[in-house]
Amino acid sequence: MKTSNLKATPAGKKVAESFPVIEVSHLSKTYGKKSTAFKALDNINLKIFPGESVAIIGKSGSGKSTLMHLMALLDKPTSGTIKVLGINANKLKGKKLNRLRNKYFGFVFQQFFMNANDSVLENVLLPLKIGKISRFKRKKLALKALDIVDLENKAKNKATNLSGGQKQRVCIARAIVNNPKIIFADEPTGNLDSGTGKKIIDLLFGLNKKGTTLIIVTHDEDLAALCDRQIRIVDGEIVKESKQKAGYIRRTAIREGMKEDR
């Protein structure tokens, strides 16, 4: 498998910097009030370091999507703090919050969420348009992103005329067009057959190898196994954190040592 080749060379990755890109502490999220209250997440503590690939695994309803939404700053926690790139996100509001997401995050969704009637190019440059990048520059960057996913020749096609795999590649292009620090991928292969899914996985881990932090939410054990780290969530709590890859364990050991020094 090609992906495992990628993973077997962790030395190719940028060496992790000392500060986590995302740091979650004592995070809880409750939906509803009093009698109908439902605790989706309970006291989650988590650090994700630059260049890591992390899988958040769990069954549907386990709270894994809620956790991703909170880390992606799409939702506010009931209690606890989230630090993104060293910034306490609880204190961010409105414009600054939007800017942070727009500049540093990339999103890949299971259901693509493309504007079907717009061209592929228009779909890819949407984050840049929102980020007030000039017409000329955003077109250039979008074509570059499409080149990475090997769809430059489809730039002018209508998004609706693409196959599922192509659509997901367009979504990846859209996720990387702003050169993000972190990519959030929510079941990126969920709607694809295994062959097409593999291409998407190659693309995502290829980006990860170049230094982008990758956070994948999935219930697919095989996909999760490809990540440096697996965070398993059951009923809103982290039940198990496994660190499978040798390269990763090594790096983690260094980090743990640093932590103890502090």
Binding site: N98, F113, G131
Partner: peptide
Amino acid sequence: TREIGLMKALGMSRLK
């Protein structure tokens, strides 16, 4: 609805 959600996720403000 989906498109609005996406644009918000991508950092578009309420005002916009």
